[in-house]
Design a protein around this nucleic acid. Structure first.
Lengths: 224, 224
DNA sequence: GGAGATAACTTACGGCGTATGTTTATCTTG
DNA sequence: CAAGATAAACATACGCCGTAAGTTATCTCC
């Protein structure tokens, strides 16, 4: 057959789980989770959609793998640092990873069946609090508070309809113009006097809120 | 025709946007956003799928309407209360609304084209900070920090594979049993000594983290 | 009661995830 | 190196999905 001869000229490149997941992450980064379809993923891998199922159980399994991939990109808290510094660094790294892969903010089934990178990450974060003098109970509080904040911030950041300062200013001006001015006076004030000021960037809010949470955790650790 | 006669016996009930959105919210509450399909929604409304398009522009418009519905359920901060009390109450109400409608945590296109309930809600929250003595800039910090925390917490809560205390204990025991014990010692400790303790409920973490954020905002307001 | 508007229904299309069955390429073992 | 076994590719098909386009029934108002 002609196809057999052609196959001899262009030998198949074997797939594997890592290559599949990496390509899927690229696709989702570019167009969001809804751009990730098995057929399109197949195209990017030069393979038919069904061939992917030799390497992942189904689409959910694929996405779980992708989420673990993202967790693997987060810098683990360093043992050498004091707890606050260590958690601060990994929180920034966490937020950066979620900004690189915005689709990951909504996945969160890492909660139901976490992959190995996710487990290691969580273990190290918990260990950092414990070694920093937090009781088991206060470690739970700290873990919940910090990660809730990070996830929530990443989600808000993702949902903004702009990213660069120029886009922000343009978008804010439009939104301000079409706001009924008397109906939402405080919203109008915030937009006009803060968002539209030169140099405004929503991303700058991240560290302010993060440090607020970390300082609160420090005083919580030392009281009761 | 027989169908014409039958129609005379069972006259059509007219649809409208509110009824469509309310039914869609019910459907999503019960089975998540992926259970919300136009055909199923039609069935629940005793109507063909395409008839729904006389009342919403498309599915995205429908979901936007649903999100605004949820925002409408959140109690507005009261003018009578001190800012901290007012924000605390509305934050609890916000979290309750997101717990009732878990699908809403991932929607967030309220950011791109907010509905009237969403706008009113935001305006009132911003106004509460402003009248509580926050500068415009600090109001932005406060708004971002509080809502990030609430969204993130709601998302984590939603992604837990259990809700009742019994389920939690059962699930935690299973997860603990299948954890490589030496590989994740801190995770194991937290699960055994905290999650498996009687009376544990992740939901209790909400107020702890919320008060931590609110206290932090208070001292931020009074410094610099 | 007749006309025009509104909102329902019907049909159809392309794309989705994936079950099932078949073919081809690669690996194993002598 | 040959051949049988295994793994991974391809091909087809099914029942869903959102929704465009066209048709019919009902409601509203004179």
């Amino acid at each position: 057959m002609a196809s057999a001869r052609k196959a001899a000229v262009e030998p198949r490149i074997r797939l594997n789980r890592e290559r599949v997941i990496a390509a899927a992450v690229l696709l989702a980064d570019a167009g969001g989770l809804e751009a990730l379809t098995m057929r399109r993923l197949g195209e990017h891998l030069n393979v038919e959609a069904m061939s992917i199922y030799n390497h992942v159980a189904n689409k959910e399994d694929l996405i779980t793998g992708m989420a673990d991939e993202v967790f693997g990109e987060i810098g683990l808290p360093s043992h050498g640092d004091e707890w606050k510094t260590a958690i601060r660094k990994r929180s920034i790294s966490f937020r950066d990873a979620l900004a690189r892969h915005p689709w990951a903010t909504t996945v969160r089934d890492s909660g139901t069946n976490p992959g190995p990178a996710t487990l290691r990450h969580h273990d190290r974060v918990i260990g950092t609090f414990r070694n920093g003098g937090f009781s088991v109970e206060k470690t739970a509080h700290a873990f919940s508070a910090v990660d809730s904040y990070i996830y929530g911030f990443a989600m808000q950041e993702k949902s903004l309809p702009f990213s660069t300062p120029e886009e922000t200013a343009a978008m804010a001006a439009i939104m301000l113009a079409q706001l009924p001015p008397n109906e939402y006076p405080y919203l109008a004030e915030l937009t006009a006097d803060h968002v539209l000021k030169p140099g405004y960037s929503y991303g700058d809010e991240f560290l302010i809120g993060l440090d607020l949470v970390l300082d609160g955790l420090e005083s919580m650790r030392d009281t009761d």
